[in-house]
Write a protein that binds this DNA or RNA. Structure first.
Length: 202
DNA sequence: TTGGCGATTGGCT
DNA sequence: GCCAATCGCCAAT
């Protein structure tokens, strides 16, 4: 039984959402499976802001997106294209509808549990892409609204290691407000998703 | 009550 | 590279 990594402090997440998206690169996401802990290092995120037409929060709070309008550090989980779940971290003070999408991560521990969820895929592809990440970590709407700053079924932690160089690009898969530089990724990581043209290490 | 629309993925050409 | 699958959400009827 491995030790449970200490959750991030909620107060420490109160910052500009685009900055939080960069802050989360290199942090750990921890999933408690019945038989083991799975952990992964976040390597790719996107910020969704107030006044951002690509954001689910753009038209104000609804039953689906209400977590975005709550306090920071809670999970906003939704189903995309009727096929894939997306994990977001709520950001900014309550009343503000902003969030950070977790797009990809590098597996660290609990590979067996994650491969059990995903089937026979290469380790590199386990958490490469937001839908794959959610599937590997068994994340769905049951986890919508859970506290990511306390030990439970899913939380965020840090192992104290610095992230490395962070790259910036436009966000993937959106059509509105498509030119904003709000996607962040760990330069050189083979666990990052998206086209090589966006991931070039400049 | 309805229908148009996705913050994607995997399979096929 | 192209595209269908699949379904919850929500603005408009």
């Amino acid at each position: 039984m491995s030790t449970h990594p200490k959750p991030l402090d909620r107060e420490g997440l109160l910052m500009d959402t685009a900055v939080l998206a960069q802050f989360l690169i290199g942090k750990l996401i921890v999933r408690a499976f019945p038989d083991m802990l799975a952990t992964a290092r976040i390597v790719e995120t996107e910020a969704y802001l107030t006044g951002d037409e690509a954001s689910h929060g753009f038209r104000g709070p609804t039953p689906r997106n209400k977590v975005m309008f709550g306090a920071p550090g809670f999970a906003y989980v939704y189903l995309a294209y009727g096929v894939s779940f997306m994990l977001n971290v709520s950001s900014a003070v309550a009343g503000t509808g902003e969030a950070v999408l977790i797009r990809a991560a590098e597996p660290v521990t609990g590979l067996e549990a994650m491969k059990r969820q995903r089937g026979d895929v290469p380790t590199r592809d386990l958490l490469r892409g937001p839908g794959r990440l959610a599937k590997a970590l068994d994340i769905d709407r049951r986890l919508d609204g859970i506290d990511l700053c306390s030990i439970g079924s899913l939380w965020l932690a840090s192992d104290g290691e610095s992230a490395g160089d962070i790259g910036v690009s436009v966000r993937i898969g959106i059509t509105k407000d498509a030119m904003r530089p709000l996607r962040f990724f760990l330069k050189g990581s083979k666990f990052v998703s998206g086209p090589a043209s966006l991931n070039a290490a400049l």
